[in-house]
Simulated scan of single mutants.
Amino acid sequence: MSDAKPNSLKAVMDQLNAGTGAKPLTQRDKRARTVARLVLVQALYQMELTGTGVETVIREFVDHRFDSDLDGEPMAHADEEFFSEGARSIVREQATIDPLVSSRLASGWRLERLDTTVRAILRAGAWELKFRPDVGLEVVINEYVEIARAFFGETEARFVNAALDGVAKDVRKP
Rank of each mutant, 00 (worst) to 15 (best):
V39M: 15
L40W: 11
L40K: 03
L40F: 07
V41W: 00
V41S: 05
Y45L: 12
Q46K: 13
Q46L: 02
M47Y: 09
E48N: 13
E48T: 06
L49F: 04
L49C: 07
T50E: 13
T52A: 15
T52H: 12
T52S: 11
G53N: 07
G53Q: 07
E55V: 05
V57E: 12
I58F: 06
I58V: 09
R59F: 05
E60G: 08
F61K: 13
F61C: 05
D63R: 14
D63G: 00
R65T: 15
F66P: 01
D67A: 09
S68M: 05
D69M: 10
G72E: 02
G72S: 10
E73W: 08
E73P: 05
M75N: 11
A76I: 07
H77Q: 08
H77L: 13
E80A: 11
E80I: 09
E81H: 12
F82Q: 15
F82N: 09
S84G: 08
S84D: 00
E85P: 01
E85K: 10
E85M: 09
G86F: 03
G86N: 10
A87R: 04
A87Q: 08
V91T: 11
V91C: 00
R92D: 02
E93C: 00
E93R: 01
Q94Y: 04
Q94H: 05
A95T: 06
T96S: 09
T96L: 10
I97W: 02
D98Q: 05
D98M: 02
D98W: 00
P99Y: 02
L100W: 01
V101L: 03
S103E: 08
S103G: 15
S103A: 14
A106N: 15
W109T: 15
L111E: 11
L111T: 07
R113E: 15
L114R: 10
L114T: 04
D115M: 03
D115Q: 09
T117V: 15
T117N: 08
V118L: 05
R119E: 11
A120R: 15
I121D: 00
I121L: 03
I121V: 06
L122S: 02
L122K: 04
L122M: 02
R123T: 00
A124Y: 14
G125S: 01
A126Y: 07
W127A: 02
W127Y: 14
W127N: 08
E128Q: 15
E128Y: 06
L129E: 06
L129N: 07
L129W: 04
K130C: 14
K130V: 04
K130P: 07
F131E: 05
D134L: 02
D134N: 13
V135M: 12
G136N: 12
L137M: 09
